[in-house]
Design a protein around this nucleic acid. Structure first.
Lengths: 142, 142
DNA sequence: TTGACTTCATTTCATTTGCAACGATATGTT
DNA sequence: AACATATCGTTGCAAATGAAATGAAGTCAA
């Protein structure tokens, strides 16, 4: 039978590392704000993009339609975002951060930057530079 | 409010890339063998390690206890692995590949190598070398 | 205007997930 | 031996997930 080293298999290594790092960060903001990864992504995208539809979010942020919809509902219930039917096109729902949401983002952003910096700190400057190019390439591949 | 570019955030990029690559590969072996990612990992680990317990698998392979247990049950039902209570310690369940499982692995291994090669083909040799070192470092960090 | 299509967000439904509880077995202490 | 404690794998359960169905709203062509 063929032998195969899972530990050296790139998709596996990638998955393990991603899980580890995402969980590590989720613990940080989860403890502070009680939000999930999906909610974090919605908040961040709204902070970037301003007033956008559900569709715009899930197209940009690598999440399922229903996942975004549900995250948005929870965030609305928590007073973090606002949902408003678009006046021109009533199929669209405009999402936007409330003042509370903006204050949350003001604290989330530095937490994210700190966490990222801490993770990448184990790499040399050359490695960090190489990593960027590698990810650019892999992410746009195919 | 603080501005923040999710697309450049390392944990996010990692998650997107990992999802993309794992799904791409899962489609390959899913179409061929109808197995899930959890089942793929169990099979591969058994191919590497021979006769091992459930515990040994989930400790080595970054999965939940119950996930491994359920994957193993499905694989047993499909005739791919064998479950046998350890004679010395009856709490342990020894998992091993059946001949059918071994034949499956003989086809899975080249598929995996091909897929990995195809993914990494977009990188230069220098980038591939750098990537290895980077992952070694990040995976053992903290 | 009517009817056929498309798009949008939510919801439904079956499945998957992770955690905790469980029963069974093993170990260690008195 | 008797009891407490620890470990193993499975299962119960509530929550999360993804795919498809739904209904509401918009678009287009006849």
């Amino acid at each position: 039978m063929d032998t195969f080293d899972l530990d050296q298999f790139f998709p596996y290594r990638l998955a393990v590392l991603s899980t580890k790092i995402s969980k590590g960060f989720a613990e940080v903001y989860g403890k502070e704000f009680g939000i999930s990864l999906a909610e974090w992504r919605v908040i961040v995208h709204l902070a970037m993009a301003g007033k956008v539809s559900v569709r715009e979010i899930y197209q940009r942020v690598d999440m399922d339609k229903s996942k975004v919809s549900r995250a948005a509902s929870r965030l609305e219930a928590a007073g973090v975002i606002l949902k408003k039917v678009n006046a021109q096109d009533k199929r669209l729902v405009e999402l936007s951060l409330t003042p509370k949401g903006k204050r949350m983002m003001d604290r989330l952003a530095p937490m994210a930057r700190d966490y990222e910096a801490q993770v990448l700190a184990v790499l040399s400057p050359e490695q960090r530079a190489a990593l960027e190019g590698i990810f650019d390439t892999l992410l746009e591949a195919e």
